[in-house]
Amino acid sequence: MLDGMPLVDAHVHAPRLSTLKPAWREWAAEFGGRYDWRSAYSADGDPVPASLDALLESEGVDRALLFCEYSPRATGIQPIEDNLPLVAHNPDRFRLVANVNPHLHHPVAAEVERQLSMGAVALKVHPVHGAFSPADRELYAAYEVCADRGVPVIVHTGSSTFPGSRARFGDPALLVDVVEDFPSLDVIFAHGGRGWWYDVAAFLALAKPNVWLDVAGLPPHKLPTYYARHDFTRLATRMVFGTDWPGVPGVARNARAFAGLGLPEEVLRGVLAGNAAKLFPGLGI
């Protein structure tokens, strides 16, 4: 807990550094440079389960959702199997998030089933790094699996700085058909439409009961400006806290910055943990 409130970091990357392209390490050094994230890693560049667990404990994190990613053109291959030792070390704190890329996985439904069978509590798709539309009909089979299982889908929305990315696939409007075709499927817009599409992401989160905003990678103090055209308190009821760790100046620091926005306590508790508890099965928080 942090300052008496449960805390879920719903957007954490803890890959083996040897699986990544140089741009990822440069990103982590630039955005997490004031944060001692490397203390959770071995000299060989592998996450040390006990060290990462202790670091997140010190930051007040009760649950952390660990992302994997299959994006060879942008960041590299970060297989879900690499996160298994972290979950094995502390299955109470760590949870898996699955990932598929339709250019690599066929059939995608079978791969989603495989990763969910490992205990994943959500599916992440990264159209910007993978250079595909999130509305690609091949992905509908994956969405159907998640809808049937009651598992949410997290979709990267907004820009990315990594070479090989295709920003046009980060437009949240591309997901309108998906949201409407799968009304029982919760769809979480990672990074909240970062860059050009804050208004589109916010409009859909307020208009559609199955759309949520993951605010990872966004400085909390700037959120009211990014979403200035919307009722921020109402919009915050649709938000899920995440940091994009390790590209963050600190989990506790970001959570406290969010607390400093003056939201009603019930809304703040929802952002920091309550909304995640509703969305991700089995968090037990």
Rank of each mutant, 00 (worst) to 15 (best):
G130A: 10
S184W: 06
V121P: 14
S184A: 14
D44E: 15
D44C: 04
V108S: 11
L96M: 02
L17I: 13
D214R: 01
L86R: 00
E266D: 14
D199V: 03
L123T: 12
E144V: 00
H230C: 09
V240M: 07
P91L: 04
F232H: 09
W196A: 15
G45T: 12
A74F: 06
F94A: 12
E266N: 11
E57K: 14
P47G: 11
A276P: 13
C146M: 05
F280I: 01
S42H: 01
E266L: 12
A28Y: 06
R256K: 15
G119C: 13
A98K: 04
G158Q: 00
A207Q: 01
V176K: 04
A28V: 13
H221R: 12
L235G: 06
G45E: 02
L272Q: 05
G247R: 03
A257L: 05
G242A: 07
R16V: 15
F162P: 01
N90D: 14
M239N: 05
L116D: 07
H106Y: 08
A14W: 04
D181C: 02
H106T: 13
L272K: 06
Y226L: 11
H129G: 15
T233C: 09
L223I: 09
D46Q: 13
P49D: 10
H156K: 03
G164D: 07
T233Q: 11
A122D: 10
D82Q: 15
A109V: 05
V125F: 06
V128S: 07
R253T: 15
D82H: 15
A273S: 10
K278C: 14
G150Q: 07
H230D: 04
H89E: 02
T157A: 06
R93V: 09
R137H: 12
L66E: 14
D186T: 02
F169T: 01
A147H: 13
V87Q: 01
E144R: 09
E30A: 14
R168Y: 11
M118S: 06
L223Y: 06
S133V: 00
E59S: 07
G217C: 03
T19W: 09
K124E: 09
G170F: 03
N275C: 06
K21N: 01
A252G: 07
A10Y: 08
D186P: 15
R168P: 08
Y198D: 03
W24V: 15
A147T: 06
L268M: 08
L213K: 00
G119I: 11
P102M: 07
F169Q: 00
V121E: 08
D3Q: 07
V151D: 01
F203W: 11
A120D: 05
D231A: 14
G262V: 13
E57P: 05
P22D: 09
R95N: 10
N254E: 14
R34V: 02
R16F: 10
P22F: 12
Y198R: 03
P79E: 14
T237L: 02
V155F: 02
F162N: 02
H191V: 10
A276C: 09
L261P: 13
G193Y: 00
V87P: 08
R234N: 08
H230T: 01
D3L: 02
D136Q: 02
V112S: 12
G150H: 04
A131Y: 03
P163Y: 04
A202D: 06
